[in-house]
Design a protein around this nucleic acid. Structure first.
Lengths: 203, 203
DNA sequence: ATTTATGCTAAACGATGTTCATTTTATAAA
DNA sequence: TTTATAAAATGAACATCGTTTAGCATAAAT
């Protein structure tokens, strides 16, 4: 009797329904409107039912992070077509920034908000973030190996690069740049990308 | 009869009491425990009374930002003693990062949290942040004038520098650096400061 | 057909920020 | 000093939120 298989399948489908509802609410109405009650309303179940499939709201947000990281990782895949490591590094930065500015709420969830991180016992369990970081790491390793960067510490170069990209977009996303108007943003971003590359590349 | 003067003084004192209570709660117990009811409890008034002196909670958080910016601005004042612009730039970065890491919750309120910004009608009204930014701007202008930096655009250099510093500390503060353990943080920060300076300075 | 297990939910709990009618207190006028 | 008026403070409530629990309905197993 395949009843237990069906039960598991139904359980999985219900989890997907909840995540899908949460994702749509998130993207269409913004973070503030992602409440357990609204999710329950969308899937046409009671709020309490949601808790039969997810421990708490943070766990749902955590699962929602994965959606974002998959999208970012997908974008990064076009990098394999670029052979020159210096070009590749620039493209990597551009992809990261474009993703952030085009999906601000999702980026916020992935890299700024506290809530989704509470679902992890330890920070070491945050693997989704590490995957996209390793893409950058390997590019920089290549850059150093081929003499485009002369720094002795790939770790420092890598983290600096990430910090700079994250810094720019998070300042914009959290509205901390009064000196730069909305329609200046993209040109400033390009300027920073150019500047970063000319500074970081030694060859 | 100076009763209206006294009334105004008392009103001002009450506002100070509320801010002081909020600040202490904020620093001693963290953001989550800064609630209107807890503030009211500390100052020994009812929660409704708080609303006679501040429009809403965001306005209180906004006023609390100023406390942080005053502290940061105070720290920046030791920079006037440094004559060499390149040295000055490095010290400016160090001060910023040290302030952030030593006052993480306050930094968060100043540069990351959404809530305190809602009190402003327009982003252009956010003057506290601009003041500290201008300190960095003038240092970089000096660096360029004296040939330490060759970039044609001070605006880009300035914003990049800030973005890098903010990126580093906000990644740490919001727990997005699983590849760097807590006790590695300060050495990584120093490494980044060194790297940034060698890259940014052309002389 | 009866028992057992599962899935679901209504209702409530304890928070939160916020508002408003009411009461208490202080000031001004008589 | 007593009274009328203005100001200050509050208790109680509202609308949310995330979350828990006791009980109900349906499906499964005996």
């Amino acid at each position: 009797m395949g009843t237990i298989e069906r039960k598991e399948r139904e359980k999985h489908e219900m989890r997907e329904m909840i995540l899908s509802a949460a994702k749509n609410l998130f993207i269409q109405e913004g973070f503030d409107h992602v409440t357990i009650r609204r999710i329950a309303e969308v899937i046409e179940y009671s709020p309490a039912t949601v808790y039969l499939y997810f421990a708490d709201k943070d766990t749902i947000l955590c699962a929602l992070q994965e959606v974002g990281f998959r999208e970012l990782y997908k974008r990064q895949q076009i990098l394999v077509a670029i052979k020159n490591p210096a070009e590749k590094l620039r493209a990597c930065g551009k992809i990261y920034i474009d993703f952030a500015m085009e999906n601000q709420e999702l980026y916020d969830l992935m890299f700024i908000m506290r809530a989704p991180m509470k679902a992890f016992e330890s920070l070491a369990d945050w693997n989704v973030g590490r995957d996209t970081y390793e893409v950058l790491q390997s590019i920089i390793t290549d850059c150093i190996a081929q003499g485009y960067i002369k720094s002795p510490s790939p770790q420092i170069v890598c983290f600096s690069m990430w910090a700079l990209m994250h810094g720019v977009v998070s300042i914009f996303i959290r509205d901390r740049a009064p000196m730069i108007s909305k329609d200046q943003q993209s040109s400033v971003i390009n300027g920073i990308l150019d500047f970063t590359m000319t500074e970081i590349l030694d060859k």
